[in-house]
């Protein structure tokens, strides 16, 4: 359990979110109400489940709030998040976004730069299952992700990690691509 203050704020957040869900979002964003009548028969409508879910969250977050308000001692004073968390996830998020962008666009970009041009020009969709185009995005994006993350966690760049990251990406190609014709590596299914 976190500190009393954190738990109280958590309970308040869930209570507000649940109240909005149960009484605003669910009824307004469903075609049929919780209970509706159709051809003289009373039925449960689509709004029922989200309203029950929202009401459940509301009920238990209010009980949790009551219990926390009665609580006297803090069992754990460490906050769940701090500046380090923010810094790490900013770096991690940036690295992940970069990796996914590289993974998605490297293949089409390489094809545009180095692929056949003029009358022989082809789209990436036509080439997405052919060597080497189908591997470019996955290899570059996957390597960026694995090597970048390992280096971020270790706080230094090591050549041995370059090798292990390349081996990891090649290993995944061996698992997912080489034995199967029907499986597409990312991002080839999107083209």
């Amino acid at each position: 359990m976190h500190s009393r203050r954190v738990e109280i704020w958590l309970a308040i957040f869930f209570a507000v979110f649940a109240a909005l869900t149960a009484f605003v979002w669910a009824p307004l964003d469903s075609e049929t109400a919780a209970i509706y009548e159709f051809r003289r028969q009373v039925n449960i409508g689509d709004a029922m489940l989200p309203m029950v879910a929202g009401s459940g969250i509301l009920l238990f977050s209010v009980v949790h709030l009551m219990l926390q308000l009665r609580r006297l001692q803090d069992e754990d004073v460490d906050p769940p998040f701090d500046r380090l968390t923010l810094f790490f996830y900013a770096s991690f998020g940036g690295l992940l976004a970069l990796s996914l962008i590289v993974m998605f666009w490297a293949g089409p970009l390489a094809l545009a730069l180095f692929g056949p041009s003029g009358d022989d020009s082809v789209t990436y969709r036509q080439m997405r299952s052919t060597f080497p185009w189908k591997y470019i995005g996955f290899v570059l994006g996957g390597f960026t992700l694995v090597f970048g993350l390992t280096s971020l966690i270790e706080g230094r760049i090591r050549w041995v990690r370059v090798i292990s990251s390349i081996l990891a990406v090649l290993g995944l190609i061996l698992i997912f691509d080489v034995p199967f014709d029907t499986i597409l590596l990312p991002p080839n299914g999107d083209f």
Partner: peptide, 18 residues
């Protein structure tokens, strides 16, 4: 990090969409 890439690849293999 390899586990992360493996998981994302496995999910993609199933859904074939980013």
């Amino acid at each position: 990090p390899m586990v992360l890439l493996l998981t994302l690849t496995a999910i993609y293999a199933q859904e074939t969409s980013f």
